[in-house]
Design a protein around this nucleic acid. Sequence first.
DNA 1: CTGTGGGCTACGGGCCGACAA
DNA 2: TTGTCGGCCCGTAGCCCACAG
Lengths: 419, 419
Amino acid sequence: MGSVEEKIKVGGLVGGATTTLLEEMKLLKEMQNHSGARKAINSELWHACAGPLVSLPQMGSLVCYFPQGHSEQVAVSTKRSATSQIPNYPNLPSQLMCRVHNVTLHADKETDEIYAQMSLQPVNPEKDIFPIPDFGLKPSKHPSEFFCKTLTASDTSTHGGFSVPRRAAEKLFPQLDYSMQPPTQELVVRDLHDNTWTFRHIYRGQPKRHLLTTGWSLFVGAKRLRAGDSVLFIRDEKSQLLVGVRRANRQQTTLPSSVLSADSMHIGVLAAAAHAAANRSPFTIFYNPRACPSEFVIPLVKFRKSVYGTQISVGMRFGMMFETEESGKRRYMGTIVGISDLDPLRWPGSKWRNLQVEWDESGCSDKQNRVSSWEIETPESLFIFPSLTSSLKRPLSSGFLGAETEWGNLIKRPLRPGP
Amino acid sequence: MGSVEEKIKVGGLVGGATTTLLEEMKLLKEMQNHSGARKAINSELWHACAGPLVSLPQMGSLVCYFPQGHSEQVAVSTKRSATSQIPNYPNLPSQLMCRVHNVTLHADKETDEIYAQMSLQPVNPEKDIFPIPDFGLKPSKHPSEFFCKTLTASDTSTHGGFSVPRRAAEKLFPQLDYSMQPPTQELVVRDLHDNTWTFRHIYRGQPKRHLLTTGWSLFVGAKRLRAGDSVLFIRDEKSQLLVGVRRANRQQTTLPSSVLSADSMHIGVLAAAAHAAANRSPFTIFYNPRACPSEFVIPLVKFRKSVYGTQISVGMRFGMMFETEESGKRRYMGTIVGISDLDPLRWPGSKWRNLQVEWDESGCSDKQNRVSSWEIETPESLFIFPSLTSSLKRPLSSGFLGAETEWGNLIKRPLRPGP
DNA sequence: CTGTGGGCTACGGGCCGACAA
DNA sequence: TTGTCGGCCCGTAGCCCACAG
């Protein structure tokens, strides 16, 4: 902890910014007073809700901030992309190197939608980068003991309770006293807001199965869950039982706010970054992992490796991780078919989504046909930085080997495989 | 209609803006596609929900836009006022003369919170003001046949229905057939989103009273009404029965959005206005009458009269209208105790809340101790522009006379009346 | 192994007049 | 005039198993 603070201080001095540690502290205190942050949110539960692919940068580390990506998040939230009414900020670069001052986890009181608040301070790329500490890539801790189930019509109807998958119940819940007739216990679990929920856990029926009955419908009602939404249980490091929810994608989490027009939001994002860049002063952003198409705050190390570590060319094969329905990871393969600016007018030369790609499988129409180099794995990056590729949990060896052989195949594969 | 369009066009040309009518139309169409605006919102119901003091500027009219006021609205919505991290916009004046291009009414799908979206285009004050048409002050139509009731615990409990005040039922609802035992009818009413609700209206009990029974609890549940919230019924110009809701103030309507940090929102407001001012290009704002402390888009005529029409000085007595609990109007009296800048650093010389005031009555601690000149009535303004002062509905003559005599008294009254 | 549906029961939603403020 | 309560009834939330995918 002490070292992190030191880094911040040093970073501030080297960067030539006027920010003092005292101001840091004031800022920090102010953030903690921000509504809804009274109790610290459980990090493991937050990450379980965020999904296996989301990792946040570390406090004190260096990152690249991409205004375009931030604008994309605004576009998704407001369902309105940037229009011509939005001014150009010629002095705002397409990528802004920043020091991460603060990262706090949040969850919407109404919807339980998770998001992170970060305070970033632009640094001078020429003076301030030599000692890049290698944190910033250390993955955030994802809970190992968890399960995630997509709710069925029966789970959410008023007719009954929640059917717990057998493995989940046996792995996560306290062991039942099977001598009881029927075996029963009371589960007390906490959610992101530290509310407690009590569920009656019973093992009954023919054939026998695990069910949550009494208390379940209250939970469904309070969280407004529908069939298709997901519920997840985890056991944190203190082996406390916690519960989280994930809405189906169809439910737009955030309605277009009646506070600010979409245009003003886009302008706010860009103007805030431009002002911060000009003054090297800190600015505050929100990151909504589940709404956002792509991360737009990238650890500098990761960014550097992808840009300088690999020669990317048209025709190159690549892999990219996506989340599965059951909150696992799966690699999809594709081919790079072009390298060009996403927005040549506003952001010439930007590395944001400058790779045009085609996916091997049909049914990938939901996937972006433009990606950024740090999102993908190439044969080279796999070879040079194997740590980047995979940290699958359960089928660790088989999964990893599977990936390897897959890579082996694809390298030998022709450029455009026929049907 | 034709004349309004013409005004827009002329305004655009005289202002030297590059905006063409074609672009206007595109903009307009785009706005209509804005989510949630498929069906036009009933204007009378919207105004009934907004309250008797809210009036919107007319399309095509000239207004003064106050960035400070807009920022106040953001501050209330996010519960965070502008911080030192927000840049100064030296080229953005504290008041911006604009042409109103478009005004659309909206209501939040979730909360029914009403708001208006306006498109404003800055105009050149020196070239573009000579013929100020006198629309812009014409008050928006508030329904004359309406009633508003604050819900009691019984109204919202699951135990029973809604107790309709006698006068309301007799004035608004279709007459009951009192030969029935008991007299009963089915009411079909529409809300802001054009959803229909059916209530069983019955006249029963000992003593007899009007009740809404079947269907009421669905409404309460769907709108998530609590004791203390208000419900209002109106009969519009087509004598259709409509229903609206107003949340109690305690319920913060808009939670701090997880889309944009409060700082970025403040910046977005200011940067959008600054950019529009520099280019004389249109910009879009939202106005939330019930959240916003004061209107920040003021008809130019009203602004001019208040600033140039009246000499305001320290010690002067004034009156100001406020909304009563039952959605009526009431005048509160006070004394001007100072004239000074609200924010001498950012907005020197601004007319926004530059009057410091003291209220006669105790229990006005909820009221601002700073107001703007166009919000108040002074003896002079009363004399010169009587149309500004009062348009009370029911007790028109008596109310107006009452106001007159009150003014008569206070003019003679000493500067600081003793207890 | 787990999703859905039929059967059954009991709790509470919701209609009524009695009071009293 | 209208807010709250006790009384009562019946609709449905919610527990159980059977059955099938």
